[in-house]
């Protein structure tokens, strides 16, 4: 076998394509989602559009968690949990989720999954 360079033309191709893919994904940001998904005890409590401003009260074992949807953003406005972790997280960035563990409520961005019920 003759001496070959560690990086051959095809390797450079794979390397550049992979790098481009990663760079593109990072630039596009977390594609996030176009739906707000609120779960209570692991079950979907509400799936809503982020464009409709509203306050949602989610009942949990400790009390009500208030979720605010405003101008395409979503946050946990109030929660009865002792450490207030999910409230202090503020507006949830696309791709992220806020979990109020003591009250078993989670808010996350999701993709719309169209099925016959959506229409």
């Amino acid at each position: 076998m003759r001496d070959l360079k560690p990086l051959r033309p095809g390797d450079w191709g794979i390397l550049c394509l992979g790098g481009l893919l990663v760079a593109w994904l990072m630039a596009a940001g977390p594609g996030g989602g176009d739906r707000v998904v609120v779960k209570q005890a692991g079950r979907v409590f509400l799936e809503a559009s982020p464009r409709l401003n509203r306050m949602v009260a989610v009942p949990g074992p400790l009390g009500e968690t208030q979720i605010e949807i405003r101008d395409g953003r979503v946050r946990v406005a109030a929660d009865p949990s002792p450490r207030q972790l999910c409230v202090r997280q503020g507006w949830i960035r696309p791709g992220e989720a806020a979990v109020c563990l003591p009250n078993r409520v989670s808010v996350e961005w999701g993709q719309a999954r169209y099925d016959s019920l959506n229409y």
């Binding site: 070959l4 051959r8 095809g10 390797d11 191709g13 794979i14 390397l15």
Partner: peptide, 15 residues
């Protein structure tokens, strides 16, 4: 099975 002159360990490792 790719041609060895074009694809080496680095490409295979990435894939």
């Amino acid at each position: 099975r790719l041609p060895r002159a074009w694809f080496g360990p680095v490409g295979l490792s990435l894939l």
